[in-house]
Design a protein around this nucleic acid. Structure first.
Lengths: 213, 213
DNA sequence: CCTACCGATCGGTAGG
DNA sequence: CCTACCGATCGGTAGG
């Protein structure tokens, strides 16, 4: 358990591969390019990951493992409906804004390998989605959440909006710059509006019967 | 002006290139693959488009030209605020659902060439975005639209949600399937919820002072 | 972790 | 619109 250089090198390779796959795409990134970024030769990289596809799988596995730990933590931390909303949406936003390349990687993978991502979502995320949807249905029965919300679809739309906005927010911000406003970008304003849209399409407006913990 | 085979062949190439670039990505599609789909040899394709990048530009130009004609038409057709919402969101949804590969192509291009897409949005779409944002501000002053809406950001969020949902809807629908519901996909339910979210985050709930034309 | 090397495929050109 | 061909780069292996 001393200097585990083997594992360290694997992590270094994964970090550079994540970044390059996110920015240039899997097909736009050569094994050679990843090796150069790490500072080793191509055959050395292929010792740690026996093929380019194994490297892709390693990158995705790393992200999957993050959420396998994170989701139960987030759901356990929040008690009331409003808390669950803020904590859940906050966890997604902070994870992907901490490194927008994570969002770009997810979007690229959905486009490049839709079937395998479908399977991954079905296996690892659908149980959680069902649980959150049930929370929403409970809130609908209690009157705190709008009756016309389609729980599963609402979740998918909000996650799509989050990941999409973070993945291509630098591009779409070209539409937001006001006249005479200089070159200042408005990423946080985008996220604020996103949260507002998500919240107001979910909760009932009447502020009575608030279920505080 | 009789049998213009030259232009016809260009269009055939563009159609197959659009589909292949959307599904496999630009870097994942060889000129050879496009030529095979069309039914000609690679050097013949390169007679019509002098390089692979010229082919990419041709594909994007075609889509840009669609919206150059469509946006003014849509804005002219709608008069009241609710009409503008329905017509505008409807135009985007119907264009991209007619061929989801269009949405995939847009997303891929934003990821692969963020700077050039930024420039394109700034030049060709920002004027329209500003105009629509002004409509929203007028609605805010009249009281029909929520005061807490950030007009430009709202537009970007809704367009992101539309294109994102259509581009990867087949994948994210893996999260929506209810237990014991069979394999039936729910694309239209996704779009219905999207429209609901967009509408309810935009308009004020009080149904008085409706501005009919 | 390296040097040396492999067959396959890439975008593109020559020339007709 | 074709056949024939180019140098460059691809993912991956041999062997140490």
């Amino acid at each position: 358990m001393v200097g585990n250089t083997q594992t360290e090198m694997r992590q270094r390779i994964l970090d550079h591969a994540t970044r390059l796959f996110a920015v240039r795409g899997f097909n736009g990134t050569s094994v050679q390019a990843v090796a150069e970024a790490v500072g080793i030769r191509k055959p050395s990289l292929l010792y740690h990951f026996k093929s380019k596809d194994a490297l892709r799988a390693g990158v995705l596995d790393q992200m999957l493992n993050h959420w396998k730990d994170e989701i139960p933590k987030v759901l356990a931390a929040a008690s009331t409906g409003k808390d669950r909303f803020a904590t859940g949406v906050g966890a997604i936003i902070s994870f992907f804004t901490a490194d927008p390349n994570r969002a770009r990687l997810v979007v690229r993978e959905m486009l490049d390998s839709p079937e395998s991502v479908r399977e991954m979502l079905d296996t690892h995320f659908r149980p959680w989605t069902s649980m959150i949807a049930d929370y929403i249905r409970t809130g609908q029965e209690a009157g705190s959440i709008r009756e016309d919300v389609d729980p599963e679809s609402w979740i998918v739309q909000v996650v799509t909006m989050c990941i999409g906005t973070i993945a291509v927010g630098d591009v779409t911000s070209a539409l937001v710059r006001r006249r005479g406003d200089g070159d200042r970008p408005h990423p946080s304003e985008q996220m604020k509006e996103l949260v507002r849209i998500a919240r107001q399409s979910l909760f009932n407006t009447r502020p009575k019967e608030s279920q505080d913990g």
